[in-house]
Simulated assay, not measured.
Amino acid sequence: MIDPASLGRHLHDLRAGRGLALSALAEAAGVSVSMLSAIERGEKTPTIVVLSRIADGLGLPVSRLLADLETGRVIVRRAAEQDHIAEPGGWHRTVLTPVVPGVNFEWIRTTLPPGCDAGAFPAYAPGSHEFVAVESGELCLGVGDAEYILAAGDSVYFPADVGHSYANRTGKPCVYFVAALIMRSRSAG
């Protein structure tokens, strides 16, 4: 298990060793200064995508960023430690998975309010995968040029190396889970 305080100290030392201000690394990594600061203080545990961005900003592979930080094989992420992200348009994501060195996997619970379009997402690198399962409501999933309507209990798999989108076109909330195996950060646009 990676101790957030140890990760924060290690990240701070790497940044300081390169003579980078917090704002410079945040800009290079594409993460907010407040997020980076909270990680360095050990107050937040970043997702693998955020860790990958920080590593890229430092010019390091993720494995080097996490070197010597793993202290056990079982990693527990308590509900209070999960990242809750309120997105524009009223939808909400909760990142359920802990960060595991060398494993580019995320499990996310998303709630789309009635009539909410979460927008289009760019493709991940080849070899990436997404699994989606609808818990309640109805989800309109776009994958490339195709569209799929999924009801409660439905699930789908798709290679995540194509653009995709999520929308709720009904008058009731939609709750769904995404399990994503991400080969590296998303491509731009």
Results as ranks from 00 to 15, higher is better:
39 I>E: 00
104 N>T: 13
45 T>S: 15
58 L>V: 03
108 I>H: 04
120 A>W: 09
135 E>Q: 13
89 G>R: 04
111 T>D: 09
61 P>G: 10
61 P>N: 10
128 S>H: 07
130 E>N: 12
136 S>F: 03
96 L>I: 13
47 T>D: 02
124 Y>T: 00
76 V>E: 08
81 E>T: 02
113 P>V: 07
38 A>F: 05
52 S>R: 15
112 L>Y: 06
102 G>N: 06
112 L>W: 09
112 L>F: 10
41 R>D: 03
46 P>S: 04
121 F>W: 12
53 R>S: 12
134 V>E: 01
92 H>Q: 13
88 P>A: 12
57 G>A: 05
114 P>N: 08
58 L>Y: 02
91 W>T: 01
61 P>S: 09
63 S>K: 14
64 R>Q: 14
84 H>P: 00
58 L>Q: 03
135 E>K: 02
68 D>I: 05
63 S>N: 14
129 H>E: 15
76 V>G: 00
73 R>P: 03
92 H>V: 09
133 A>D: 07
85 I>H: 12
71 T>S: 15
38 A>M: 09
87 E>F: 14
40 E>F: 03
66 L>F: 11
70 E>V: 14
105 F>Q: 11
130 E>L: 06
74 V>F: 12
42 G>N: 01
49 V>K: 04
93 R>I: 02
67 A>R: 12
83 D>M: 11
43 E>P: 00
115 G>V: 04
132 V>I: 15
124 Y>F: 14
112 L>I: 07
99 V>L: 15
125 A>I: 01
46 P>T: 02
127 G>Y: 08
107 W>K: 06
85 I>F: 13
43 E>F: 03
53 R>C: 02
76 V>S: 08
114 P>M: 09
105 F>H: 10
78 R>L: 12
42 G>L: 01
108 I>K: 02
70 E>L: 13
82 Q>E: 05
97 T>K: 08
47 T>P: 01
133 A>P: 00
58 L>N: 04
89 G>D: 06
49 V>R: 10
44 K>C: 00
122 P>R: 11
80 A>G: 09
94 T>E: 15
63 S>Y: 08
47 T>Y: 01
130 E>G: 06
128 S>F: 08
119 G>S: 09
67 A>T: 06
51 L>C: 15
50 V>C: 06
76 V>L: 13
127 G>L: 10
137 G>W: 03
75 I>P: 00
137 G>I: 05
54 I>M: 09
48 I>F: 12
49 V>T: 15
68 D>P: 02
67 A>V: 06
115 G>W: 06
102 G>L: 05
76 V>N: 04
71 T>E: 15
